[in-house]
């Protein structure tokens, strides 16, 4: 009995997932839900075969390319910015209101303007993705950098450590759990950002495929694209967790 309970506990999420998919399939069948309202899981599975694997890869890579580039740029801007904000009150006072303004602006609303300004191509999509994903990284990293107990920084100063050393040896390690939590949030936002951008302007990508399929009422194909999007998000989320586990195993239980 306890062994069964152990197995049930271990695979609880998988069992729940299978249960939901089965209920979905049965529900669609039982209530005769039209495919254009909600396709059954079996129809979604079949929809994967309507496109060749190379075409699926083309769409998936188009989205991932934008998401990963936007995420990389967001991280490259956000971490130094967070350090600067925590180091200088003046910079913090000048920059913070702008960060909040950017975060409060619905990017979906200004996305068409960004596309018109930056033209066709990958650039506007990357900019949209960066704008959507960089804010949590700045805020979490800055929070982590500032949350170092005062006695640590006082000790560092009493030993005449430089400010740089204080940041790299005390504050940054302290901020790592915050940073990785933010990176996990940001990577899922980057996928959302890439899809938003493709809704506005794109000739390829999973977001474009969803738009195209729904406009021609092939909802099962749109759902199949959604499945890939969710799977991509989960894989990237897992990769960041693995990266943290490998590089900074000690930082895992503090965030």
């Amino acid at each position: 009995m306890s062994a069964l309970k152990r197995i049930a506990t271990r695979y609880a999420s998988l069992i729940a997932f299978i249960f939901v998919v089965l209920a979905w399939e049965l529900g669609c069948d039982l209530f005769q839900v039209p495919a254009f309202v909600l396709p059954a899981p079996s129809a979604i599975l079949t929809a994967f075969t309507t496109l060749s694997p190379s075409r699926w890869f083309e769409h998936t890579w188009a989205t991932l390319e934008v998401a990963l580039l936007g995420f990389a740029i967001a991280t490259a801007i956000a971490v130094p910015l967070a350090i600067t904000i925590t180091r200088s009150k003046l910079v913090s006072r000048v920059v913070m209101p702008w960060l909040i303004v950017i975060q409060s602006t619905p990017i979906v609303a200004i996305a068409p303007i960004i596309v018109v300004t930056l033209g066709a191509g990958v650039l506007p999509r990357v900019v949209i993705t960066t704008l959507i994903s960089f804010f949590p990284i700045v805020i979490s990293t800055a929070t982590g950098l500032a949350s170092v107990p005062a006695e640590f920084t006082e000790l560092s100063r009493s030993l005449r450590a430089s400010r740089n050393r204080e940041y790299w040896q005390i504050r940054m390690p302290y901020a790592l759990p915050h940073l990785f939590s933010a990176l996990r949030v940001a990577i899922t936002l980057a996928i959302v950002g890439a899809v938003v951008a493709e809704f506005v302007a794109a000739e390829r990508g999973l977001g474009y495929l969803i738009l195209y399929s729904t406009s021609s009422f092939r909802i099962a194909v749109a759902f199949a694209a959604l499945v890939i999007l969710v799977a991509s998000s989960l894989v990237l989320y897992g990769l960041i967790t693995q990266l943290q586990r490998r590089l900074f195993p000690w930082s895992e239980h503090r965030g």
């Binding site: 039209p34 309202v37 009422f217």
Partner: peptide, 11 residues
Amino acid sequence: SPASLAPMLAQ
């Protein structure tokens, strides 16, 4: 939305 036009009619 454009994608909802026909499904709403069908429903």
